[in-house]
Design a protein around this nucleic acid. Structure first.
Lengths: 350, 350
DNA sequence: TGCTGCATTTGTAACGATCCAAATGGCCGG
DNA sequence: CCGGCCATTTGGATCGTTACAAATGCAGCA
């Protein structure tokens, strides 16, 4: 039935035009649903499009129209579930707007980031969503993307960023407020000796979370022992390894605000290995609310960031910028929500 | 220093040509590193490129050369860590070959899959890597991508696929052999009553894993009770919910081969809730070796699929196909490796 | 009949790159 | 001094689409 053995070359708009004796211009109008074309003509053309199996060449159209139909998404770590969810959200919104997503991942390497950005920019995305690699430099990024490319920075800041060159929008989580809420929650439960566990001191998100923690402690008039600030890679494995450091000093904490969920889960494991029972004799909070948080043992009290929503939001913000290139840059801070589960118990009776 | 306030229009090759009194053709040759150009000329042109902040327009070049510099990656569930790792692997290899990845995710909906494929195809990728949505139909996919688009199917089969129309390559995990290995491992430990837990009966990977399980059981002369075959959504949560079903009949199993790691971890949780201790009085194996498998409690015996490697492999296979479009289609089965950890214990002494 | 107005349709020049055949200019041998 | 050769450069057509101004045809009306 109507099988046309389409062999070599791709079908173009000229083929369609020739196939039903109209001009290329008319076919183009049909493709774009213009009301100018006669409805009988339109029908003939559409039939021919179907018959020949035409596929639109958006690259050619974009070239002529000087438009773009893609956005680039560059992530420091796609394999991380947080960013994977984020990416899914971005793609969902981007696709909803009729765009496609160009993906790039940098594996936390500023050098790769530069290369990836360079390569993606050549493909002419309308804008870029970037979650920078650790140590990524503002001037380098700017050089790679150019000063007129709409750019949305997610989740982290760039090193050496000064207001004069920063033409980009940002979307960040409310790290400080989140850590503050977690700390206040533990304080309300009766804890007095609370640690801040995990993360790299020099990452911007870690700095902000520590700051929130410190403020809450200070506001409650509680001391912070220096050995309660434990650094670790933001992974389960390294967190488990660093557990012992918490109990190295003479005054042991009874609770810990963790840098993120991965670290919190690692700490749980480490506690079990030290013979302690998280959720019974030690309270823990996380950050992110990853899928495992609700089924860990015990279920983890944490700050929900809803990464998929953040992805959609990031895409929406970038689309905004595409439509209004000349509005002043915006800095959005997404609220986070405290989700209380069993890992945050009161301190053991003194 | 040398800051040229580049305002509106993008810099094109003509601008460079004009800027140093050579023809566009010469600039083009320089861009592509042709040995034809005089090295003094090349230097002048390169200086001008830098000075004006030129960025290559790959879309225009692709149009003229009738080539492509992208591949499309369409996933049924990007938020799943297995696919996120896979995507990271694909992107790594694709970027290494100087291509970019066009991302699409379908949220397990065949309708969205069709739309996403249609949209991506218009952007002219050189080929497509597709992990189909559940229930995705072969003819529909074929209609969306056309019969000449290089296509690699990953992880699942398409419904209604018949050899006459299947021009695509495939890359699959060795599901059957993997489940067989897991089952044999449990049998070697002394288990006789072994269940197969989780997954959707009609997904191709679940069928294959069940088949491997059945073969191993049969080869060992062991019975399979019907209530030992428990279905669940492939998620932790639903798996935890279905746990009770395992112990509904009169003969309870002492071990379970799980559809995948998520299910296995859910089952662990369910067992704890039923007062059993996985790794002590009940043995469990998973499938995938996701990151959590090594830090769960107890650490999970599972089949390692190395999704990132699969991603690289998928990209490599597709690149192969791009270079040799006329070689016969290939069906690759990636081996899996049994990783023994503490979750697979011997049966409790009778 | 000639003119205007409307609904359609169309030719042609772009968009930014590449391909190709042909031009340029310098140098060498005869 | 000329022809030929080499190394280099170049104009113009082209990829598949869209913008735009202009053409077409037909109906209505004075």
């Amino acid at each position: 039935m109507g099988s046309t053995p389409q062999v070599r070359r791709k079908v173009t708009l000229s083929d369609i035009a020739a196939g039903c004796n109209v001009s290329r211009a008319t076919v183009s109008l049909v493709l774009r649903g213009s009301p100018l074309v006669n409805k009988h003509t339109r029908a003939r053309v559409e039939e021919e499009l179907r018959r020949q199996g035409y596929v639109y060449n958006r690259a050619a159209a974009n070239l002529r129209r000087r438009t773009s139909s893609s956005i680039a998404l560059v992530l420091n770590d796609l394999a991380n579930p947080f960013f994977a969810e984020f990416a899914a959200g971005v793609d969902e919104a981007v696709a909803g707007a009729g765009f496609v997503t160009l993906l790039g991942s940098t594996a936390e390497s500023p050098a790769r980031e530069e290369a990836v950005l360079g390569s993606l920019v050549e493909h002419g995305p309308g804008g870029i969503i970037l979650s920078p690699a650790e140590g990524s430099d503002a001037r380098k990024v700017l050089a790679a993307v150019g000063s007129h490319m709409p750019l949305l920075l997610f989740n982290r800041e760039l090193d050496g960023s000064v207001p004069e060159i920063a033409h980009w929008d940002t979307l960040a989580l409310d790290n400080q407020r989140g850590a503050q809420m977690a700390t206040e929650h533990l304080i309300a439960l009766g804890h007095k000796r609370i640690a801040f566990f995990g993360g790299h001191r020099d990452s911007s998100s870690c700095r902000q979370r520590r700051e929130g923690y410190r403020q809450a402690m200070h506001a409650a008039g509680l001391r912070v022992e220096s050995h309660w600030m434990v650094e670790s890679a933001p992974t389960r494995l390294d967190a488990a390894r660093q557990t012992a450091a918490l109990f190295a000093g003479k005054t042991s904490p009874t609770a810990a605000v963790c840098y993120n969920d991965a670290v919190a889960l690692g700490l749980m494991l480490g506690l079990y290995q030290h013979g302690r029972r998280p959720g019974h004799d030690f309270a823990i909070t996380g950050f992110d609310d990853i899928a495992e948080a609700q089924v860990s043992m015990p279920p983890l009290t944490t700050l929900s960031t809803v990464p998929r929503e953040r992805g959609k939001q990031a895409a929406a913000l970038l689309m905004q910028r595409l439509q209004h290139p000349d509005t002043p840059v915006g800095h959005t801070i997404a609220p986070v929500k405290l989700v209380v589960r069993e890992s945050s118990c009161p301190p053991p009776a003194a």
